[in-house]
Design a protein around this nucleic acid. Structure first.
Lengths: 198, 198
DNA sequence: ACCTGAACACCGTTCAAGT
DNA sequence: ACCTGAACACCGTTCAAGT
């Protein structure tokens, strides 16, 4: 599996960098789960001495942390959000969903460690923007956004992880998974009610 | 910390049983987190040879699994549910919440492993009963219950674990934590809308 | 039947020594 | 500056041997 690291001239064609380490770690995690990631296996995958890693990465915890941020940054792939706030909210929810599905194992771990969703993140700002459009009063923006992020994030976690016993879902509507669609509809209605009450 | 295991007569006053092992493991997890649980430390806490554990427990994974079920069974502490379905739902949500808060570390792990919420569980049946009262049609009972369980469970996970960046919550209402209350209200309204539409 | 010591194949991490 | 081998203090688990 590991390839020669020497170019014909004798110099290394690929030097060990933080980026290469992170990418390799993410690949390992996506493939075999976070349990299967060890500094020693990672080194083997990079065809490198285990100890060399410690010149680029403080320790395993820091490595996993960095890889998590790497994956989280990929929600940037959000298409520009337009339409009614209901449409925007649905769009954002599904974008978030696709992230958790493409890095199942990592997100599983991320949700188990603090501050996965940061207030400076694209995701957070997008959510806040949608809530402003929806007409949520200023002082409620942060708590409502936090609750929504928690609810959706948690649902995805339970979905991805089958926390809830599986059973046949009802025939799907227009969008994706029926369970997720129920959630989106329910949250949208809940938000609507909240606005109407204010 | 460890006490003598011999009664004055010379017989052991406490024999090693599955129950004692489970209880000790739960105590260790609650105290220091699941990361800190090792077969060797658990044996030390029980004042026993590490290998003796394997006579009562297949392996570490099976042990953690059993302990998880032990904790889940404690939602039985649900008071009998009465009142409107909205009141019942709030009650159930808060009961679930108190479980996740009293076994923070374990629940964290449980949500990261399949089938934490089983369809035969008290929690599940209670939730289903409430939805029947609310007037959810039969064929939607299971999916809606699953979504609700996922949403609430996930929110608790993110709360317990501070997945979302913390910030000052708005002044609380009549019940508990303001964030959780927002969620309960939003889900109740969402459910209400769903019923109205049917 | 129940317990145990030694052993195996792993970990993450430190550190002194190499180039 | 970058890499590495040996070593340390841990793991989970197996198994043959004890009582």
């Amino acid at each position: 599996m590991a390839e020669d690291r020497k170019a014909p001239g004798g110099r290394r064609d690929v030097r060990l960098t933080e980026e290469r380490i992170h990418a390799a770690a993410l690949a390992l995690i996506d493939a075999d789960g976070i349990e299967a990631l060890s500094m020693r296996k990672l080194a083997a995958a990079l065809d490198v001495n285990p100890m060399s890693l410690y010149h680029h990465v403080a320790n395993k915890a820091a490595l996993v942390d960095a890889v998590t941020r790497l994956a989280a940054a990929r929600v940037h792939a959000l298409a520009p959000v337009t339409g009614t706030w209901q449409e925007q909210l649905r769009h954002l929810a599904y974008a978030f969903r696709s992230l958790t599905r493409s890095h199942r194992e990592l997100v599983l771990h991320a949700f188990t460690s603090p501050d996965f969703i940061r207030r400076e993140s694209t995701l957070w700002r997008a959510l806040r923007g949608i809530l402003v459009d929806a007409g949520i009063p200023d002082e409620e923006l942060d708590p409502v956004a936090a609750v929504l992020a928690g609810l959706v994030g948690g649902l995805l976690l339970t979905e991805v992880n089958a926390v809830v016993d599986r059973f046949p879902a009802p025939a799907g509507g227009d969008h994706g998974d029926p369970h997720f669609e129920i959630a989106v509809q329910m949250l949208t209605a809940g938000l609507q009610a909240r606005i109407a009450h204010a």
